[in-house]
Amino acid sequence: MLLFWLLVGGTLQAAVPAWRHMGQPAFPILLGVVLYAALNKKARYFVAAAILAGLVEDALSLAPLGYSSCAHLAAGTLAVLLRKDFFADRAFTTSWLGALCAAVATGTLALLLRSKGLVALSGREMLWRMAGSAVLAAALIPLLFGLMRGLERRLGTWEDRA
């Protein structure tokens, strides 16, 4: 199921243009899948999802292989650490958690790309972009969680908090 969402997420993420108004962040669909795995699945599924999502994201961009995996692992780990404090099935809390994790993922990736000199980005632009991805994630991730959970319930693979 996660593999299906990773393929669909990667395809959609590459089809939807980045948001021009807040530092050009992409819609964090793959990150949403990783966070879903981090909050609802066993650790090994989350790690596999983070690495594969990074692989797909890097393959569909000019980023070196593995960079996005690091960013997704960082964001997912944060989600796992905060899992007990959040209600994963409440839209409001997943929205906040999504925003926080998206900012962390964007920041991690920005630092990695900057350290290799692959993108020229000032600190202000980086913060602006982190804020942009947080806003997008806050709006998108509860919807994505709802879709994923709905599909899992229909297929009978949903289990409350693994």
Binding site: A15, Q24, L62
Partner: peptide, 13 residues
């Protein structure tokens, strides 16, 4: 058929 999936670069596929 697509664009950069991360938004870091101005690319199309």
């Amino acid at each position: 058929i697509g664009r950069d999936s991360t938004g870091w670069w101005q690319t199309v596929r």
